[in-house]
Amino acid sequence: MTNQVELLVKGSRRALARTLTLIENQHPQAQATLAQLYPHTGKAWILGVTGAPGTGKSSLVNALTKALREQEKTVAIIAVDPTSPFSGGAILGDRIRMQDLSGDKGVFIRSMATRGSLGGVATATRDMVRVLDAAGFDYVIVETVGAGQSEVDIVRTAYTTLVIEAPGLGDDVQAIKAGILEIADILVVNKADRNGADQTVRSLRAMLELGHPASWEQFVSHHGRLMETPTMPSTPSDVTLWIPPVLKTSAIQNEGITELVIQIEKHRQHLTESGTVAQLEARYIEIELYERLQQALMRQVTSQLSESLIQTIINQIRTREIDPQTAVNQLLVQLN
């Protein structure tokens, strides 16, 4: 074991921070470090928190973490913010809402920019989660703006996913559009101190009760087990159900947080007792394997292609000499 890994496992926060940087930068030593850490992982409960900008995710994570700390659980937080596609820079401001957690040695907050697509954001996040898991935290919370596919991918590293909504952001059709029913294990209507919270709760419940086939199928594949909403036809009694609860919270007034912690614990129990957690983990590993394989193959292939060859092909495609798919087929033949 390298010195840094040893220090990390023993609880050095500086070693932990440095290892996270190493992984994030895809430093040449990153892979070996992850391999050494891997046996120490698998103990943390991973929570995903996502939702539209301005729904109060960071404040909610702040309140939730305080509640978990009262139960003497240690908490690590990865707050993901987007990298500017133009400059490659980012402003990471989630810590502003988490100042209450300052000075607590049982909490570790790390801001992370999505950076380029190189290697995939989900892969990078997964690796960061593992580092924090190996460092011995009871909970690892991944917070991300739920605005697109990459965020959904990030959330698919979590065992329990909270989708945060706020009143007045859109009607129930927006809710279907965003696909939130598919990824949420718990739906949270935050900023419940504002007008319209009850209506948001009602429309989310109504959407859940619709139980349309798409969400049905999604639930099956999401947890590997059949789950259904109350309006669905009756099913055999051995089928495990998890109906995402819709909760109201006000993070800044610290309301509804106790109930949220209870529901997270219930979901955790549900997954562990039904054995679904093993299936879920297996499915995540499968997704990850394919992703890594894809990336490795891509690197292997692109390393064999010269820039001039690519430019020639681009020109051929542009001048309509050849179509893109035929060009790719020919390239693959050449590479084999």
Binding site: T83, S84, F86, S87, G88, G89, A90, I91, L92, G93, R95, I96, S111, A113
Partner: peptide
């Protein structure tokens, strides 16, 4: 940020 840095604010 515009210079490509990650700024923790």
């Amino acid at each position: 940020r515009d210079a490509g840095m990650e700024v923790i604010y």
